[in-house]
Write a protein that binds this DNA or RNA. Structure first.
Lengths: 259, 259
DNA sequence: CTAAGATTCAAACGAACGTTTGAACTAGGC
DNA sequence: GCCTAGTTCAAACGTTCGTTTGAATCTTAG
């Protein structure tokens, strides 16, 4: 009751409410009045503390992405220095990149499932300033991990790695953002399917752990899939020779079945 | 110059422009005035012909999804009757589901890349009426394909199949919707990476073909990835015994590396 | 030609939007 | 006490939103 609580209190309360509402209704679908009413502050408070609605959104993300970016770079640094020059295994890289992200969902002080879902959903927002913001926020980390994958998979065309990184980002982004979408589409609750009964488990931190356990093998399987026809140029070695990354190397007969 | 062209002309022109603008700016980010100005019709034309902005969006999708749903069911029917009771191969099911979709991108009369990107982007729209609409439009097809995958992979827990179907939908949705996102993030144009030089190839029908060739192996690899730890309950047989679906069955050591 | 229906048009509607204003209130230092 | 800087407040700003209106125009059939 002593320290200047009002400042911090108002700012944080606005950020918390905005985070939740942006997640539920998107950027354009969330009005200043919804935010200020939910945070029980005056309408002018957002513009006073943050300057504008756009700046508020940026601050909502900056508050969380700082930790994420730092952690991602740090984990990758640790892996690379531990490997002492030897190329990393793809599984290690994916675990560092996606595992770090999914750990946010387990820790409410890092944003929890709310921020995780907001992040996944906002990546597909069409507004220009949002794209620009994410491009600058993500550029360094994405580039580091891209290079790490290039080194880990020297015989795979770089274009193919970028495509698959794109696919992996999509699978994860959609998976965390659209849990309710799938629930509606499939007509059954994910928790039930997974054997855990709690109905409103969307915000459950345990969901993040289960999601990670499910998502990681899927992503790794996709990353190490056989190359598309016409691209197995060199010796075919998507999977490295290290023990746990060994994988069958069967050609795929998926393409041109009926077109 | 005889048939009542004005009606058809106005309606189609509105739908075409709305399709493009919804794709570029999202539902909330596209105003009636943007649409009517772009289509060179009066502001009241949309409400006259469609009733409301929401109804317009629904009609934009109904115009295209009819073909898609019909084709997807038809292709699956053909496969199942051809198999004469034998379970389908997962690769066939994925080819039927995602190949049919991606063929839209190659044919501008089915909507082309514009509709494809619109579809991918709209799946993550937060507006409630959009979710409801897609749930009803997709329910039947998704259920049929889900059942087909259950049959094709009898030894895989159904929950796991639903999760991976979810992941696959996400990878594809994001891949077609967010090509420019990746371009910004990675700082390099996808066409260049793929070796094809054309700069503004986002709307190129050939992109759909390339995308399909890249996406399908990734999805299949993810679908057939080893089960997460603690779920290899029965005999481990994610991959069927048929020739082209054979796959190595190595356990994965991804989980619990450092948490 | 004319009456009837379908379509287009300019103009306006009320509501909601993000933002700004200027006064009121709340601290802490002198 | 008063002053100053930081914060909150009610009220209004101008703009844009989706929608509606009623007259004008076009199309078609009798």
């Amino acid at each position: 009751m002593s320290d200047q609580k009002s400042n911090h209190d108002t700012r944080e309360r606005i950020l918390d409410v905005a985070e939740r509402l942006f997640m539920a209704h998107g950027y354009e679908g969330t009005s200043m009045r919804m935010i200020t009413t939910g945070a029980e502050v005056n309408l002018a408070a957002v513009n006073y503390h943050f300057g504008s609605k756009e700046a508020l959104l940026r601050e909502v993300f900056r508050r969380r992405l700082g930790w994420l970016n730092r952690e991602r770079l740090q984990v990758l640094d640790a892996l690379e220095s531990e490997a002492a020059g030897a190329p990393l295994k793809p599984s290690q890289i994916l675990e560092a990149f996606f595992g770090t992200l999914l750990r946010i969902g387990e820790d409410s002080s890092l944003g929890g499932m709310t921020f995780l879902r907001l992040l996944g959903r906002t990546l597909t927002e069409p507004a220009e300033f949002i794209r620009t913001f994410f491009a600058s926020e993500y550029a360094e980390v994405i580039d580091r991990y891209k290079q790490a994958l290039f080194t880990a998979l020297p015989d795979v065309p770089k274009a193919e790695i970028v495509w698959r990184l794109h696919f992996m980002l999509g699978a994860m982004s959609y998976a965390i953002a659209g849990t309710d979408v799938l629930r509606v589409v499939t007509g059954c609750e994910l928790g039930d399917l997974a054997g855990e009964g709690t109905a409103d488990a969307v915000d459950d931190p345990a969901l993040a752990r289960r999601l990670a356990q499910r998502l990681m093998p899927f992503l790794l399987g996709g990353l190490r899939a056989p190359l598309p026809l016409g691209l197995e140029s060199r010796t075919f070695s998507l999977a490295s020779s290290s023990e746990d990354d060994a994988q069958a190397q069967t050609p795929n007969h998926l393409q041109e079945k009926q077109s």
